[in-house]
Design a protein around this nucleic acid. Structure first.
Length: 547
RNA sequence: GGCCCCGUAGCCCAGCCUGGAUAGGGCGUCGGCCUUCUAAGCCGAAGGUCGGGGGUUCGAAUCCCCCCGGGGCCGCCA
């Protein structure tokens, strides 16, 4: 059992209520429990006296000695006993894993076809992929689902643009860029000739009605877009278990809207502009009357999302459905989840929302062609990594790719999802400080030692420098659990920075190879390498071999 | 107007969920450290009314209320 958990459980038993342990200021102890404050009231003594009384009862193999200060019970671990608890585990390729055994369906990335993914999709893609990996590592079944936005009026414009201006060769080579080019061209031309808009509207109508030629074009756009997205996904190491599109749920959505009408969850709107539309009645919840079925009988994203949600439950029987989608869709998901609950859905429904991604010095507009291509971001980061590696004579194309791509991923993950972030080139491709390369450099330093010396390991009484690392290593399982519980990879990202910092410090102040403590320190280095390696993979980063 | 999110050093952030010891990092600035496992590193210095006010509590950056500032949403778009 993890020593921190073991001690927490012991203290809880001792005092009769759960006490969260924390890391005390240095020199005061290894782990601190503010037990005295609450007991002081019960026992009518000072917090310090209460803590002292608890301290007297402490008798546990993990505890070397205790120290009472204020209302705190400060514990100094028995370092050898502590080490025993993690000695085997910390070197295991499954260190920190668990057996949670829940089923999650995670909706992430979900780009709109025929449009380039923007940085917001990138954030969703990376957070979702990481969450999936973390949840799986903890023993859950996690299904990665890409829910394509393959319905929308932009297809009318695209069909018109395609017929007039497409360059088939470019379309095959780089579908995303060519589709964007003609899309932008359409909007430029439409400014001069407004009849194009009208033409686009007609083409969209034909598409909706199933015109074979337009449907074929739409299928082509969808296929080519996916091909384009796959390039990014491959570079990011992102893999989906299921790819579906909104268009797959149109028929279901119509049926469900009528069902909701019968059940009294929805009503027919009887006045004003949306007369004749079927709307959900969420007045009581303060969530308005969102449209489920338009007055012409066609579906809308809410009803399709609802149909899709029900399908996910039928298909995968999950305990929880996660939607890694931008926070501006907060209202939509509250409406969606409320309707689902009214229908009797009892699964955990979570909008894993994340804040806006601004881009410094750029006003993004797809129709004006003002977009930041994800490939350009990755290429720039990789080029920077390659440059740095060449300076050190450690260049290899594979590791430059690993480091560059990972630096972008880490940048995305190090901030709490719900905060807005601003994409700044200087920051995203920075290799010093709180960055992916900082973590990877610690990992590579550990690897280098192990490559040079893979001798036998043995245990010693840890000195203070070693002890700092050991304590960090032991926290890994707790971090994974917290990261999963909060649906927030940033918890793990921050931990890896923390561990890397302690290791860099150790590395610069202590020798491993040639030290009399070498066999013991090799165990520590192996554990650090193991944790940093697992951690990187769970964040969807790729551990480099050299850098 | 209603609802949601954010506000912690010059800049960017962690800590808030689950209240507890002098509020932690990074960037930038200044000053040090490569004959020793890669200096993408390390060490040190300067830098903070935790947006403001009130409340709860033995104790509030953390919980509650009000206000201010910033962003977002409220469409028969997604």
């Amino acid at each position: 059992m993890n020593p921190y958990r073991e001690l927490e459980a012991y203290v809880e038993k001792l005092v009769g209520f759960p006490v969260k342990g924390s890391i005390p200021p240095e020199e005061k102890g290894d782990y601190a429990f503010p037990v005295g404050f609450r007991l002081a009231k019960e026992w009518k003594v000072s917090p310090e006296e209460a803590a002292r009384r608890v301290a007297e009862k402490v008798d546990h193999p993990l505890v070397e000695r205790v120290n009472v200060e204020g209302g705190y019970l400060n514990v100094f671990f028995n370092r050898r006993a502590f080490l025993e608890r993690i000695w085997e585990d910390a070197l295991s390729p499954h260190y920190g894993s668990a057996s949670q055994e829940k089923t999650y369906v995670i909706d992430y990335s979900s780009p709109n076809i025929a449009k380039p993914m923007h940085v917001g999709h990138l954030r969703s893609t990376i957070i979702g992929e990481s969450l999936k990996r973390i949840l799986r590592y903890l023993g859950n079944r996690a299904i990665g689902l890409n829910y394509l936005g393959d319905i929308g009026t932009q297809f009318g414009a695209l069909i018109v643009a395609y017929r007039r201006w497409v360059d088939e060769k470019r379309l095959q080579e780089d579908p995303i860029k060519e589709l964007l080019r003609i899309y932008v061209k359409f909007h430029e031309e439409a400014e001069k000739d407004p009849s194009l808009e009208e033409e686009a509207r007609r083409e969209f109508e034909k598409l909706e009605k199933g015109d074979p030629e337009n449907v074929a074009l739409w299928k082509k756009f969808r296929e080519l877009s996916l091909k384009g997205f796959e390039r990014i996904y491959r570079r990011l190491g992102v893999e989906f278990d299921v790819i579906v599109g909104e268009s797959d749920f149109v028929e279901d959505a119509k049926r469900i809207a009528r069902e909701l009408l019968e059940k009294g969850i929805a009503v027919v709107w009887e006045e004003g502009e949306k007369k004749g539309a079927i709307v959900a009645d969420l007045e009581a919840e303060g969530l308005n009357h969102p449209v489920l079925l338009k007055s012409d009988g066609t579906t809308i994203y809410l009803s399709r999302d609802l149909a899709s949600l029900l399908w996910r439950i039928r298909e995968f029987d999950p305990d929880a459905l996660l939607y890694v989608v931008a926070i501006e869709q907060n209202l939509h998901f509250r409406q969606l989840f409320t309707i689902a609950h009214k229908m009797g859905i009892d699964r955990e429904l979570v909008h894993v929302s994340f804040g806006m991604v601004h881009v410094e010095g750029m006003r993004l507009s797809t129709r004006r062609g003002q977009v930041l291509f994800l490939e350009d971001i990755l290429d720039t980061a990789v080029a920077h990594a390659a440059e740095e590696m060449k300076k050190r004579g450690s260049y290899s194309p594979e590791d430059a790719e690993n480091i560059g791509v990972s630096s972008v991923i880490f940048w995305m993950l190090k901030t709490e999802p719900k905060k807005d972030v601003t994409f700044r080139w200087k920051e995203v491709t920075s290799f010093t400080g709180e960055t992916g390369p900082y973590v990877q450099y610690a990992y590579v330093r550990a690897r280098n030692i192990l490559e040079k010396k893979s001798g036998p390991i043995s245990v010693l009484d840890p000195d203070d420098a070693e002890w700092e690392l050991i304590k960090k290593i032991a926290r890994f399982p707790l971090i994974l659990e917290e990261s999963a519980r909060r649906y927030s990879p940033h918890v793990l990202a921050r931990y890896l920075l923390d561990l890397a910092t302690v290791f860099h410090h150790f590395y610069d102040h202590n020798r491993v190879i040639g030290s009399p403590r070498e066999p013991f320190r090799l165990w520590i280095v192996r554990a650090v390498e193991n944790v940093l390696g697992i951690g990187q993979k769970l964040l969807a980063m790729r551990p480099p071999r050299r850098m």
